[in-house]
Simulated scan of single mutants.
Amino acid sequence: MIRLEVEGMTCNHCVMAVKKALLKVPGVKDAQVFLDRKEALVEGEADPALLVRAVEEEGYRARVREA
């Protein structure tokens, strides 16, 4: 599982936009996005750099959070 810190989300619309973007990345099986924790949990074998880019293309800031 890959854990991302996501900055800039303010509402459930933001959560859905981030989740939709993450699910489009090759190798992602599932994604859960949490507004209150400002994070996303991604299941699958996706490239973390592509996950960060997908979130940033939606207008949010993201970085991989170490376990």
Rank of each mutant, 00 (worst) to 15 (best):
D47F: 04
V64A: 05
R37A: 08
R53I: 02
M1F: 12
D36L: 10
D30Y: 11
N12T: 13
R63A: 15
A67M: 09
R63H: 14
E45I: 06
A67Q: 09
K29Q: 13
R3P: 01
L22T: 03
A40W: 00
D47M: 06
K24V: 08
E43Q: 09
D36R: 12
L51F: 02
P26D: 14
R61N: 11
L50R: 15
D30G: 08
V33M: 08
A40Q: 01
E58I: 00
L23E: 14
E5N: 11
K24Q: 15
L35R: 03
M1E: 13
H13L: 05
A46F: 07
E5G: 06
A54H: 03
T10P: 00
E39D: 05
E5P: 00
E57T: 13
A31C: 10
G44S: 08
L41D: 06
R37L: 10
K20N: 14
V28I: 12
R37G: 01
R63I: 07
K24W: 04
F34C: 07
V64P: 00
C11V: 06
Y60G: 03
D47V: 06
E57H: 13
D36W: 03
A54I: 05
A21M: 05
E45K: 11
V18L: 15
R65K: 15
E5R: 12
K29D: 09
Y60I: 02
V25S: 06
G8W: 02
E57K: 15
V33K: 01
E58T: 02
L50Y: 05
V64I: 09
Q32T: 09
V42H: 03
Y60C: 02
C14W: 03
L22G: 03
L50C: 11
M16H: 12
Y60S: 07
P48R: 13
E45C: 07
E39F: 05
I2N: 06
K19E: 13
R53C: 05
P26V: 08
K29V: 08
L50H: 13
E7W: 12
A21E: 05
C14M: 10
C14Y: 07
G8P: 01
V42N: 06
L41N: 14
K20R: 15
G27Y: 07
V55H: 01
V15R: 11
K29N: 13
E56F: 05
N12W: 09
M16G: 04
V42G: 03
K24C: 07
R63N: 11
I2G: 00
V15C: 10
A40R: 00
G59D: 09
E45W: 04
E56D: 07
H13D: 07
D30V: 03
L23P: 00
E5K: 14
A67K: 11
D30I: 02
R65W: 12
V33R: 00
R65N: 08
K19G: 01
M16L: 09
V6W: 01
K29W: 02
V25C: 06
V52Q: 02
P26W: 06
Q32I: 05
H13K: 06
R61G: 11
